[in-house]
């Protein structure tokens, strides 16, 4: 095929390039700039090379925060995905219950993140919070301010409350797209409830589940606002995730060099995950291409 080459088209891209440069590339390069230099104030900078990166990658603090992040993401996924599927399976498929359920499900998603944090921060307080007070009253020794385990439970329950809806809505969208004929055929074939789930519903939810897992993984891996509002990373460092640690280092301690190095490592991790996301998605599409061609 003969294509007409017109290099003038490149000029059309310039405005976008300009915007992206201001919003992304230039700030990123500033961070790169900081990450290879040291400063003692006075706007004087000294070349530090890969020193900050080495320091970061060998620091216990970084790996501890990283470990907490992975643990958090893992627990959150293990709870939210099955719970989301379970709720989606039990949502009504027709009638007045559908809009009611959908609105109820969407509510937590509509609340700003710091408000979610504030809600739970108050909710969990043992002196005035409904949850904290009630738990105290029934004899549970609960205090998220002083007990790391309680702090973790609070942060995880909060995330589950906030984000399970997303999984539910995605799964529900997958479920309602299954034609009735599949359920009818399963009845005729004498399939059990479990077999219907395993061979009809789960395969049809495959694609949305993949999106749900990856979205929840990336989001929970970047979590900042809610635990910051509730626990502030404490007690001690027990709920200090990478993002919280990063802010502490950059804004609190004003260690710009190490913070910049950490930002870049963090950025590369997320870039890597995005790449995995993209690859898995496109491979899946290629694998199911034949199916769609046949309709």
């Amino acid at each position: 095929m003969n294509k007409t080459w017109n290099n003038k088209a490149w000029f059309m891209v310039l405005p976008v390039l300009f915007l992206v440069a201001i919003s992304a590339i230039i700030p990123l390069m500033t961070v790169v700039n900081y990450s290879v230099q040291d400063t003692f104030g006075n706007n004087e900078f000294f070349w530090a090379g890969a020193e900050w990166f080495e320091e970061m990658l060998t620091s216990d603090r970084f790996w501890a925060a990283m470990g907490r992040n992975l643990l958090f993401s893992g627990i959150v996924l293990l709870i939210e995905i099955p719970l989301g599927i379970l709720i989606a399976l039990n949502m009504p498929k027709s009638g007045w219950g559908v809009p009611v359920c959908l609105v109820l499900m969407a509510l937590p998603l509509l609340i700003p993140w710091n408000v979610v944090g504030t809600i739970w921060q108050v909710f969990g307080r043992v002196d005035i919070g409904l949850l904290g007070y009630a738990l105290r009253e029934v004899g549970v020794d609960y205090n998220y301010v002083s007990d790391p385990f309680d702090a973790w439970v609070t942060v995880i329950v909060m995330d589950v409350w906030h984000w399970t809806s997303l999984v539910v809505l995605l799964c529900y969208a997958g479920l309602v797209s299954i034609p009735d004929a599949y359920y009818q055929a399963a009845k005729i074939d004498g399939a059990s409830r479990w077999a219907v789930f395993r061979y009809i519903q789960l395969p049809k939810m495959n694609r949305v589940l993949l999106i749900a897992v990856l979205l929840r993984f990336m989001d929970s891996f970047m979590i900042y606002t809610e635990p910051f509002v509730v626990t502030g990373g404490g007690p001690g460092n027990s709920t200090t995730f990478l993002s919280i640690d990063l802010v502490k280092m950059a804004v609190g301690q004003f260690d710009i060099g190490p913070a910049a190095a950490m930002s870049i490592i963090y950025f590369l991790i997320i870039l890597l995950l995005s790449w995995v996301f993209y690859t898995v998605m496109t491979n899946y599409d290629a694998a199911s291409d034949g199916e769609r061609r046949d309709g």
Binding site: A181, Y182, Q184, A185, I188, G190, A191, A195, Y199, P203
Partner: peptide, 30 residues
């Protein structure tokens, strides 16, 4: 199930993740 009939629908209903063999074996195994 109890009426023991078979029905073929307008759009082909198959169990995507199973092999052709398992698809055919499904009603018997159930």
């Amino acid at each position: 199930q109890e009426r023991n009939i078979a029905q073929v629908f307008q759009f082909p209903v198959i169990y995507d993740t199973m092999t052709v063999y398992d698809n055919l074996a499904f009603p018997l195994r159930n």
